[in-house]
């Protein structure tokens, strides 16, 4: 598995961004960029230097679901793998995220093992 994947981690809490960044480092991924909501994330994505998006849902400004929809409706980004990492736990929300085209959904609080599992699953099923 290529370890030079470029990640973008979007969460409005800097503590959570640090945790995810550290976990990614432990998994061998060194290239991690951060953004604090959809509005700041979108320009970074559009600049075209991101291979994998990990986003929270509940954020001020542009929430994660809107970001996901924006990504899927942009022809250049439509195939970007997106993992939602959020505390949002309502069934209809998970269905909504799935319908919007999310590739994986991890509920907070989560474990390092769960994150690795979901990342690997998405990366394995990704068209090469």
């Amino acid at each position: 598995m290529s370890k030079d994947l470029r990640f973008l981690v979007v969460d409005d809490f800097s503590t959570m961004r640090r945790i995810i960044k550290n976990l990614l480092h432990d998994l061998g991924y060194q290239n991690v960029t951060e953004a604090d909501d959809g509005n700041t994330a979108l320009p970074i994505l559009q600049a075209g230097n991101v291979d994998f998006l990990i986003t929270d849902w509940n954020m001020p400004g542009m929430p994660g679901l809107e970001l996901l929809k924006a990504v899927r409706s942009d022809p250049k980004l439509a195939k970007l793998p997106v993992l939602m990492l959020t505390a949002e736990a309502k069934r209809e929300q998970i269905v909504e995220a799935a319908q919007a085209g999310v590739n994986g959904y991890v509920i907070k609080p989560f474990t390092a093992v769960t994150l690795k599992e979901k990342l690997d699953k998405i990366l394995e099923s990704r068209p090469k």
Partner: peptide, 12 residues
Amino acid sequence: LMTQGYQDLSGQ
């Protein structure tokens, strides 16, 4: 490190 996730959850 993982335990610090409480800050995000309680903050929300």
